[in-house]
């Protein structure tokens, strides 16, 4: 029986990170449990949802390394949610199963080309071979926005994917985003942006309206939103492989949750 602690796992993550680890991140901290918790198995995950916790426990994992939040707000501020009965249920479950949670977010996105989320999403979309030197840019064989969206939807099984733009516009220059980091769709070297989530209006650049008006003016633009969860869960496979490389004592695996949405016909 291994006596590996969560603190030792995190120390090895820092040592193997490859880029100076930021201790200033308020996201990348313990969300439940602490460094002394003994680790039986490690689950990398997207959102630390209740479904995810149940599946992780069923898979023999008590250390969760999620990319995203546990308490339904980005800063994981407990006081925002602690009045909700669901919060107590979730915490009770975590205590009962001796769970330890350490979020790994900012230090993933600090990795540049090695960022698991971009690598994993490109792999899952099947576009890795089309990557060009410009970071997160891809040059695809020319296709239509409609065909591209349908292909991506099938590859990801993404029920609630959303597309803006004329399905018939020809696209080849793709910029990939993940999570809430959606690239600006008005970049002159981009036909189509593929990403997770973005606010619809009142942002730095409101992609839906921009794409609609660009198409009206005869300018090639398209926007494919995959959903925050699906866009970043893929790369947690790469994160699990990375951790496995320096934590041989216990099993390390990606544990997936379901896409939260369904969409009406």
């Amino acid at each position: 029986m291994s006596t590996l602690t969560a603190g030792e796992v995190i120390a090895r993550m820092k040592a193997n990170h490859g880029v100076a680890w930021s201790e200033r991140s308020k996201r990348d901290t313990f969300k439940f449990g602490g460094p002394d918790t003994v680790v039986k198995g490690i689950a990398t995950a997207m959102f630390c949802s209740y479904q995810l916790l149940e599946r992780a426990v069923a898979a023999g994992c008590n250390m969760i390394i999620p990319h995203e939040d546990t308490y339904w707000n980005d800063a994981d501020t407990v006081s925002i949610v602690s009045g909700d009965p669901g919060y107590q249920k979730k915490v009770d479950f975590m205590r009962e199963h001796d769970i330890v949670i350490y979020r790994m977010h900012d230090n993933v996105h600090a990795m540049g080309k090695a960022d698991f989320t971009w690598i994993g999403l490109a792999r899952a979309l099947g576009i890795t071979q089309y990557e060009i030197p410009t970071l997160h840019h891809f040059l695809l064989p020319e296709t239509t926005l409609g065909e591209l969206a349908a292909t991506f939807q099938k590859r990801l099984g993404d029920k609630a994917l959303r597309v803006v733009g004329d399905p018939k516009v020809k696209v080849s220059r793709l910029q990939l985003g993940v999570g809430y980091a959606t690239p600006a769709v008005n970049a002159t070297d981009v036909d189509v942006v593929v990403s997770g989530e973005q606010q619809e209006t009142d942002g730095m650049l409101d992609s839906p309206e921009y794409v609609l008006d660009a198409n009206t003016l005869g300018i090639t633009k398209g926007w494919i939103m995959l959903g925050h969860h699906i866009s970043e869960e893929q790369g947690m496979l790469e994160m699990a492989a990375w951790i496995k490389g320096f934590v041989p004592e216990v099993p390390v695996q990606l544990v997936r949750a379901d896409e939260p949405f369904w969409a009406p016909k």
Binding site: R27, H109, A181
Partner: peptide, 18 residues
Amino acid sequence: FGGAGRRPGGETEATAAA
């Protein structure tokens, strides 16, 4: 364009400072 993204809905001063 930066990697971690901006979060007008969820960013607090604490996370912004990080």
